[in-house]
Amino acid sequence: MNQQPDHHPDQLVIRGLHVAVEGQEILKGVDLTIGRGEIHALMGPNGSGKSTLGYAIMGHPSYEVTAGTIELVAADGTRRDLLGMEPDERARAGVFLAFQRPMAIPGVRLADFLRHAVTNVRNPERKEGQELMPMKEFRSELKAKMSELSIDSDFARRYVNEGFSGGEMKRAEILQLAMLQPRFAILDETDSGLDADAVRLASQSIARIGGAGGDAASGADAMGILIITHHEQLLEHNVPHRTHVMLGGRIVESGGAELAAELHKRGYERIRAAYPDAAAAERAMEESTRNQEAAGV
């Protein structure tokens, strides 16, 4: 890297974000600022809107932003409007989403998929049809990353997520994170479906890739990471600078690492009691979902 260390990291800034899916509002005004080098934990009961936030940041076409802004703010104050970008433009701007349920692409080798992805993300101005990253260079980098992450070497030859176990899918997501080195990463339950050892490995891998948990946090390579999780273990090597609690489509409380620890121990009863409006919204959303299911929607 020939860049100077950046003491004023870029920020991912979300303001007043409202998001609806098929006409139903899921996010009801989310404010969140993530700086590079920072780790944020996003917690909350199922259905509170955590994954929706991830999809909305990445630009999933089914998630309609009805109000609010998502911007990338550079150290010099330049702002880039993420909402005006296609999903692939967002990826090339340095945003990454590790999917809770990654999609299989049968017949496409993970290495070929990644070579396309890496080429585009590193050359945001690349036009379609222009040369991909040289095979030799790509392979040696991939090999190095895989060995760093203790991933089996035949993994890259397998088809993207095709027939992968839950654990393998999550490892493939982490490998992609490592290769793409985004500025901002949203990790949506990258620990779900993993056993304790696998979560520990994932936690270490993320810490290593993100340059977190140490002095590197202020370096130019450091990522801003939003970790969506129900478990404490993933945070073991990625101690959050901030913890946010989502309930009924809003972030109702933020705190430090101690908040994550409290929620793990005690659950969301205190939160629901302290924020009755959000708890009511949560119940309404649950009811609406149940009614839709009952109606066969």
């Binding site: 990445m58 630009g59 999933h60 076409p61 296609e86 999903p87 692939d88 967002r90 990826a91 090339r92 990454f96 989403l97 999917f99 990654p102 999609m103 299989a104 692409i105 049968p106 017949g107 496409v108 070929d112 998929f113 990644l114 396309h116 992805a117 890496v118 585009n120 993300v121 379609e128 088809y159 993207v160 992609q176 793409l180």
Partner: peptide, 27 residues
Amino acid sequence: EEQIFYARARGLTADEAARLVVAGFFQ
């Protein structure tokens, strides 16, 4: 559509994503 979105989230354009999915189909 979810396959296409997944690929786009990794920086592939919609056209590239479609081509890749079709190439995979024929593989």
